[in-house]
Simulated scan of single mutants.
Amino acid sequence: MILEKIVNKDDANKLFYIEKKIFKNEAYSLKQIEEIIFMENYTSYFIKEKDIISGYIIIFDNSEAFEIMKIGVLEENRKTGIGKKLINKIKEKEKNIFLEVRETNISAVSFYLANDFKKVGIRKNYYNNKENAILMLFSKK
């Protein structure tokens, strides 16, 4: 598996394709993805195997901590270590990592707990459908 930084418009198109496949109606638009990958405080990575993209992560650096804005792994590649490899890439850096996850997304919550994230709060009615988000933290301390 190869981790590759997302850096250009062609990468944005590839990310948009994967984003739509994974998140369907809740996917970022191509315009949003293009804006994000060229913003100074954002970093994004693909993970590839045999030149096929199977997952990605988008990180926001607010100078004090990282926030995982999106992480996605194609359904057929889940539970193969891809998500863990993406998370570990960010853990290499010397900052805490935050994220929000849907309260009902039990598999994602379990994944983050297994990767040393802790539940630190709830954001009430965070999503468009009024669903709560669990705020999670990986602490470097």
Rank of each mutant, 00 (worst) to 15 (best):
E92R: 01
E4W: 05
I90M: 03
I122T: 11
I36P: 02
D116P: 02
K24G: 09
I47V: 13
N128P: 09
G81I: 07
N132M: 08
I53K: 09
Y56Q: 04
K24C: 11
K124V: 06
I134P: 00
V7T: 15
I68V: 14
I6F: 09
I36F: 08
I106T: 14
A27L: 10
N77D: 13
K119T: 12
K119L: 13
E100I: 10
N132D: 15
M69V: 15
L74F: 06
F46V: 14
N115F: 09
K91Q: 06
I58G: 06
N25V: 11
S63F: 14
Y45T: 04
K5H: 07
N77T: 06
T80V: 01
R123L: 09
F111W: 08
A108C: 06
F46G: 13
N96W: 11
G55L: 10
S110Y: 07
N105D: 12
E26T: 09
K9G: 09
E40D: 14
D10N: 13
E92Q: 08
Y42D: 03
I97R: 00
L137S: 03
K20C: 11
K24I: 15
E19D: 12
E67F: 05
N8G: 02
S139K: 08
D116L: 09
S29T: 15
V101A: 06
I106F: 09
E40S: 13
K124R: 12
S110A: 03
I134M: 01
K141V: 09
I68W: 06
F111V: 10
K93L: 14
N128V: 13
K130H: 10
K50F: 13
I52Q: 14
Y126E: 06
K14I: 15
N8M: 04
Y28H: 12
I36K: 04
I106C: 00
E75M: 08
I134Y: 02
Q32C: 08
L113D: 08
K119E: 15
K89T: 10
I122C: 00
T80D: 04
N125K: 15
S107N: 09
I18L: 14
K89P: 04
L86P: 03
Y17K: 15
Y127N: 02
N41E: 12
L135T: 13
E64N: 14
I18G: 03
E49R: 13
F16D: 11
F138V: 03
K141M: 07
I47G: 00
I52T: 14
K130Y: 05
S44Y: 00
K50C: 07
K95T: 00
I2N: 15
F111Q: 01
A12T: 01
I47H: 01
K93S: 13
G121E: 07
I36L: 11
K48Y: 05
N129T: 10
